[in-house]
Structures are given as C-alpha cells and as structure tokens.
Amino acid sequence: MNHRNHIDPAADLDDEIRRISGRRIAGSLKWLRRIREQPAEAVHEVRKDLKRLRALVRLLQDTLGKRRHRKLQRDLRNAGRLLSAFRDAEVRLQLVKNLVDQSDPAARRALEEAVERIQSVHQGTVKTEDLEEAADEVMTLLRGARRRLRVWVVPSEGLGKQMEGALFRSFEKARLAMRRTLIHPVAENFHDWRKACKTLRHQLDLVMQPGGEGGEHPRIGTLHELSEHLGNLNDLDVLEESLEPLAEGTLDIAGLSAIRRELEERRTELVRESWAAGEGIFSREAENFIPLRGHCPAFSETWLDSPG
C-alpha cells in the first residue's frame, strides 16, 4: 500500500482529504500531458486515479451535500468515459493476442486473422488526435474538480460517523450486487458487482491500517482477490465479443468449438472462485467485515463517538 494515499490519523483530517485528492488529480494531469508519448500507460493510470477519486468523493458525500456530490461524481465519471474507447480497444487487442499465445497451432492461424481485424478497427477507431482532444477535455474536468475541492470546507465534527455510514452503504451496495448476480448471473450484473467491490476496496484503502510489513489489510486483500476474479470475468466477456470476426473467417466448426470449450472452462472456474470469495465477504454484516475501532486509525474513538 502507498501510505501517501492513506489517511494519516495523526494529521488534520481536512488537510489529509485535500492532500490525497490533490495528489490524485495532479498525478492524472501529469499523465495526461504525456498522452502522445505513452498513450496506453497514461490512460490506464488516469482511469485508476479517477476511480479512486470517485470512491473518496462517495466516502465524503454526506459532507459535500447532494448537489456538489452529484456534480463531482458526474464530472469524474464523464472524464473516465472520455478515455474508455481507447482503453476498450487496447484491452480487446491484448486479450486476443494472449489467446493466440495459449492456443494450439490449429486455431492459432485463425486467431491471428482476428488480431489483424481488431488492429484495423483499433487504428480506425482511436486516432492520436482524438485521444489528445479527449485528454484536453479530461484535464478541464479535473481542474474544475480540483477548484471545488480546494474551497470545500470539511466539518470535522461528526465526520467519523458520516464516513462510517458511507462505508456501510458501500458494503451493502456490493452485497446487493452479489445477490442480484446470484439470481441473474449475466455480464451486466457481474460488472456492477465488480464496480461496487472496487469502490468499497478503494474506500477501505484510505482508512484501514495496513497488514504485516506495510502490506494490504487482510480485509482489503479479500476484496482485491474478489475484484480480480470479477475483472477476469469482464475481460472474458470482452474477449468473446472481440472474437466475432472469426465467424466469417476460415476456422472450421471443430476449431470454433474447441475455442468455445476453452472459454467456457475459464468462465466456470472464474464464476466458482467469485462465488466462493463473495460468500466469505458478504455472508457477514457490514459492521463485522469493517471493524473500524482498532483497525482503522482514521476512525478514532473520538471521531466515532463525537456528536454528529
């Protein structure tokens, strides 16, 4: 864990929130200025920062007020969407390349044909000038968010209880997403479950004590593991969409069936791992999974017991 992104319990909470949000925005702006030289890495890093910023804003939504919270969330969400086309194209291409490396020689030639088609679509869909234009728009949105956060007055009285409530709501949202996925296990529900788990993990990253030798707290580690399983499932859905050009290619039915069996085996295993990890987390109540007193230095007894 990077402790510069962790709330220091010995520091003023107001200052810590401004420091962490300011550091995320400054880091994103720095990457966006490198978008021409390092497009894939810049997009990846900025999207990570945006997700963590949104998690922080959601953690503090009670102090922001509904109007300001909605405005910040909308701007940060729109910033991420401006970069999503490039990220999606990169992911599709890399996933198919990985499948080529893992496939038997009979299927490899047809898969390489799919790679060529996806590369052609990628080059036609995401142009450098379009990406730079998107980066400029993202920088404008981030600068606006930074201005609003700088003038935001964070009331320390009762803030601990408000943040505790926000964490519990995030936990319940992730649990509800799992329940929906158990009832109707379609790609959209798995995706929503993954997003809810990542928000909760990013929020806990801010407040929970690190584990042994400065690593992740075990609670965060279990959420990280679940998010990885769900992320791999999402990648599998993207991969399947990316393989559609094979329908008009030269691979015969036997070859297509072999690829389908391999993908189904991967899906079955990932779903099984997701259910197991999710059950271990969400079969308990929020206050039992998030033991703030004694585990979260930011949530001192004074914070939690102060009048709100």
Results as ranks from 00 to 15, higher is better:
129 E>A: 09
84 S>E: 15
9 P>D: 01
115 V>Q: 08
147 R>F: 08
290 I>L: 13
35 I>Q: 09
211 G>C: 08
233 L>H: 08
257 S>T: 12
131 L>I: 05
108 R>Y: 03
128 T>S: 15
78 N>K: 15
272 R>W: 04
5 N>E: 09
88 D>C: 01
75 D>F: 02
209 Q>G: 02
9 P>L: 03
279 E>T: 05
76 L>I: 03
256 L>M: 14
258 A>Y: 11
123 Q>R: 15
49 D>E: 08
42 A>E: 06
61 Q>R: 15
281 I>N: 05
152 W>R: 14
266 R>F: 02
82 L>P: 01
248 E>A: 15
297 P>T: 00
19 R>E: 09
212 G>M: 09
145 A>R: 05
166 A>C: 06
89 A>P: 01
6 H>K: 09
200 L>N: 11
37 E>Y: 02
297 P>E: 09
272 R>K: 13
277 A>C: 07
231 G>V: 02
277 A>R: 09
114 A>W: 00
68 R>H: 13
34 R>C: 06
79 A>T: 03
8 D>T: 03
124 G>S: 04
196 A>I: 07
232 N>C: 00
131 L>S: 10
125 T>E: 14
52 R>Q: 15
168 F>E: 12
75 D>S: 14
40 A>D: 12
15 D>K: 14
67 R>T: 10
83 L>A: 10
114 A>E: 00
25 I>D: 11
303 W>D: 01
112 E>A: 06
163 M>D: 06
226 L>R: 13
151 V>Y: 01
206 L>V: 04
45 E>L: 11
8 D>W: 03
1 M>L: 03
225 E>M: 05
172 E>Q: 14
291 P>L: 10
181 T>H: 11
279 E>F: 07
131 L>R: 10
240 E>A: 12
10 A>N: 11
81 R>L: 12
195 K>V: 14
107 A>I: 04
193 W>I: 02
41 E>T: 11
308 G>E: 13
235 D>K: 05
114 A>P: 00
66 K>A: 11
46 V>H: 05
205 D>N: 14
99 L>F: 12
118 I>T: 11
248 E>M: 08
153 V>T: 11
82 L>H: 09
126 V>H: 07
179 R>A: 11
137 E>C: 08
71 K>H: 11
308 G>L: 10
17 I>K: 04
219 R>I: 05
238 V>M: 12
249 G>D: 03
307 P>N: 03
95 L>Y: 00
